[in-house]
Simulated assay, not measured.
Amino acid sequence: MRLERHNSGNSRSTKHGIPWEIVYFEVYPMKSEAMKREYEIKRRKSRKYIEELIGN
């Protein structure tokens, strides 16, 4: 699971935030759709947008 990999400290880009926890998720039938949505969220680079997602 990705969360376990992030919390293991093996990734330099996520090491600083340990321990990570899931606060929001969406479910998609295909991995490619989920990856596309993740890219859309990350592309916005908007803290306000992400906070709105988490708040709903």
Rank of each mutant, 00 (worst) to 15 (best):
H16V: 13
R43H: 07
K36H: 11
K42E: 13
P19Q: 07
K36I: 01
N10K: 14
P19I: 06
K15M: 15
T14P: 09
H16R: 10
L3M: 11
V27W: 00
L53R: 04
L3R: 09
S32E: 06
H6W: 14
E33G: 04
R43G: 00
N56H: 01
R44F: 02
K48H: 03
Y39S: 13
L53N: 02
K45T: 00
E33H: 13
S11P: 02
E52N: 11
L53W: 02
K48T: 08
N7G: 11
T14C: 13
M1L: 10
S46H: 03
Y24P: 03
Y39T: 13
M1K: 09
K48E: 10
G9I: 08
E38W: 07
V23F: 06
N7F: 05
G9Q: 11
P19R: 09
S11N: 13
G17M: 13
N7S: 07
E33A: 08
S46R: 02
E52V: 04
R2F: 03
E4N: 13
N10G: 15
R5L: 14
N7V: 06
G9W: 09
R2P: 14
H16Y: 12
E52Q: 10
E40A: 06
F25E: 11
Y28W: 07
P29S: 14
P19M: 05
M1G: 15
I41T: 06
N7Q: 05
Y49K: 03
H6T: 02
E51T: 06
S11G: 10
K45A: 09
R2K: 07
W20Q: 05
N56Y: 00
E40G: 01
S8M: 07
F25N: 05
T14I: 10
E52D: 14
K31R: 14
L53F: 01
E4K: 12
E33V: 08
E26F: 03
S13Y: 15
N56W: 00
S13T: 12
N56F: 01
A34Y: 03
E4L: 13
I54M: 05
V27Y: 00
R44M: 08
R2A: 12
K31D: 14
I22V: 15
Y49T: 02
A34V: 05
R44I: 02
R47G: 02
Y24G: 01
M30K: 15
E52L: 09
V27I: 12
E51S: 07
N10P: 04
V27L: 07
Y24D: 05
M1I: 05
A34N: 01
G55K: 06
R37H: 10
I50L: 09
G55F: 00
M1P: 10
G9D: 07
K45M: 08
M35P: 00
E40P: 01
R2N: 14
